[in-house]
């Protein structure tokens, strides 16, 4: 179910502005990889390059190569919608479809893929909501608007919606930054559980969170504004947080910078 992601020399641009420079990393299946670093260093840009959401913006493009289990994600013959189904994404701000009910939100992706049978949709909705640790809270009000839930519930709803289409990889861009500590812990628990089935890459500003949940950590940084972000160090989380190779990483971890 989970796949390996390999980035080599990925540079992403917004028009002529180079936001990240030559990022290379390998993400193994069924692991959690945390991306940390100061604001504006290109973590989101890199994440969005992985599922080809980067190119949604006008004039945005990337250089370098990204593969999922040896297949080139940016192959001109590849269907971009298939890439995005394979590599799901959870955004920083919970973004359930405002006009849809909880149930409709969860099955939205399946419906886009042409699944029509009610029993299949019902099953998928229940399974996904259970996987997202949300089922017990919403099972009696599936017809209510998804946007009426609390922020933490909405974010778990978005996770349920993402995993309902059975992706191989789940990208999360600061999924807890808009949430309270209890909801944050709920999502962290959820990530451990999902690790059995998915490859997870999470951007986080919260160093404790990175240390708690991830197997590997990548530290991004920029020298000064206007410069492209770089991947400074990428290693086992244990190593990054105890004994990093780079001085910059250590400064950031210990709070002397950023």
């Amino acid at each position: 179910m989970a796949k390996r992601i390999e980035a080599s020399n990925v540079s992403s641009y917004y028009g002529s502005f180079k936001a990240i420079d030559s990022v290379s990393m390998v993400v193994e299946p069924k692991t959690i990889t945390a991306l940390i670093g100061p604001s504006g260093c290109g973590k989101s840009t890199f994440l969005r390059s992985i599922n080809r959401m980067h190119e949604v913006l006008p004039n945005a493009r990337i250089e370098g190569s990204l593969t999922i289990d040896e297949q080139n994600i940016y192959d001109p013959d590849v269907d971009v919608t298939a890439v995005r189904r394979l590599i799901g994404m959870v955004f920083q701000r919970p973004n359930p479809f405002p006009t849809m009910s909880i149930y409709e939100n969860v099955v939205a992706g399946l419906k886009l893929n042409g699944v029509k049978k009610k029993s299949v949709l019902d099953d998928a909705a229940e399974q996904s909501l259970k996987s997202a640790n949300l089922w017990n809270e919403v099972k009696d009000r599936l017809g209510r608007p998804g946007a009426g839930l609390s922020g933490g519930q909405q974010q778990r709803l978005c996770i349920a919606r993402t995993i309902a289409v059975e992706p191989q990889v789940v990208l999360m861009d600061e999924p807890c930054s808009a949430l309270d500590p209890i909801s944050t812990l709920a999502i962290e628990d959820l990530m451990f559980k999902l690790k059995d089935r998915f490859t997870i890459i999470i951007v986080t500003h919260n160093m404790q969170q990175a240390a708690r949940v991830s197997d590997k950590t990548g530290f991004f940084s920029i020298d000064k504004t206007g410069d492209p972000g770089r991947l400074i160090e990428y290693d086992d989380t244990q190593k990054i947080f105890s004994n990093p190779n780079e001085k910059k990483t250590e400064d950031y971890i210990t709070g002397r910078f950023g």
Partner: peptide, 17 residues
């Protein structure tokens, strides 16, 4: 809102979807 559009795209929707 852009975030609603991106939610659909990230689920693998085509432009029309």
């Amino acid at each position: 809102p852009t975030m609603n559009e991106e939610a659909a795209l990230a689920l693998g929707a085509t432009k029309w979807e």
